[in-house]
Amino acid sequence: MADPIHQFQIVDLLPAVKIGGHEIAFTNSAAFMVVAVGSIAALMLGATSKRAIVPGRMQSIAELSYEFVANTIKSTAGNEGMKFFPFVFSLFMFILAVNLIGLIPYAFTVTTHIIITAALALSVFLTVLVYGFWKHGLHFFNLFVPKGIPIYILPLIVLIEVMSFLSRPISHSVRLFANMLAGHITLKVFASFVTMLTAFGAFGWAGAVLPLGLTVALTALEALVAVLQAYVFAILTCIYLNDAIHPGH
């Protein structure tokens, strides 16, 4: 059976360089990040270069993604949230592109590595913290004190609120990482059943139909998950940013 973990291996494509005690290399992961950013830039800049009043297909996609993310921000964080529009848009498009490119056979999925999702989630978390304290000062702590709570359970509520706030970057990053990792492992396992069964002659070929069908179905499901997880990451980012903008609940 083909190793389902093999697909997550990081491989140096160029020799590593030692910077401050760390080996920094251009890896397959880096290559796919570059491809993803290149694709997004091609879509958002290349397809809009004509600035057509009546858009073509690609320009439509670019405009749809723009309006989709803009509407998501406006509906969750209000018009003030539009300050973070480039940030949320970059996050959404980056995760979406990386997830979708990862679905191509033999491609590497950048978001199956927790360090990437953790870094993205932490960047959101830090943005919320920095903006919250810069905008509201100590009033930012109001976030942890919901209004209209009886005084005797307030300490408990505050504790829970603080805990949930601190655990946000963990759930934010693990959700994306685990979904992508599990999906790709499942796909690989079912796909390897097909190759394994075909080794047993005609019977095996007949039996391989079921896992093959499942692999096709799972690929469709994974395409949905790839888009959905990018959306979930973006909308959670918006909700967290909303806390930084309006900490008073």
Binding site: I10, D12, A16, I19, H22, E23, I24, A25, F26, T27, S29, A30, M33, V34, V110, H113, I115, I116, A119, L120
Partner: peptide, 9 residues
């Protein structure tokens, strides 16, 4: 692998 990934990210 974290270093390379973080730098390129």
């Amino acid at each position: 692998t974290f270093g390379s990934q973080l730098v390129w990210l």
